[in-house]
């Protein structure tokens, strides 16, 4: 007995989710960040962010289809982290790494925070 492991599968699935997001297909939540709106799939947000996990695991938020984040959250930082969730690539420009790190702290994405911190120290 054994199995055939398709080594590209995780990446192929995530790429399809990102195609669905860019075409707004099966997206089930709109995130408002300081006036900007982002469509996404709750399942991806919950899988990647401790903050969204705690929001959407709460039964009273089960049917939430729109959520506004704290105004202190930087929309550019959020956009970078949302792209990271759907691509595994974290866009790190010197000018935005601090905003990205602070947003990752807010979204409870500890591993990204650590990576941003190491990048800043280097």
């Amino acid at each position: 007995d054994g199995c055939i492991q398709f080594t590209r599968h995780a990446g192929d699935v995530l790429l399809n989710f990102n195609r669905l997001r860019s075409r707004n297909i099966l997206t089930d939540v709109a995130i408002q960040v300081d006036g900007q709106h982002f469509h996404a799939h709750k399942a991806i947000l919950v899988a990647c962010s401790g903050f969204f996990y705690s929001v959407f695991m709460d039964p009273k938020n089960a049917n939430l289809s729109a959520i506004s984040l704290d105004p202190k959250v930087d929309p550019k930082g959020f956009s970078i982290l949302l792209d990271f969730m759907y691509t595994s690539c974290l866009d790190l420009k010197d000018s935005l790494v601090l905003a990205t790190m602070n947003t990752a702290i807010y979204l409870q994405m500890e591993h990204v925070v650590d990576t941003c911190h190491r990048f800043i120290k280097s």
């Binding site: 199995c3 055939i4 398709f6 699935v13 790429l15």
Partner: peptide
């Protein structure tokens, strides 16, 4: 799946959703 009888398939595993229809 790092079992003893694992064959690794490097090719695409599923269909690709197009950027637009």
């Amino acid at each position: 799946y790092e079992g003893v009888n694992t064959i690794k398939e490097m090719g695409r595993s599923i269909h690709e959703i197009p950027r637009q229809d």
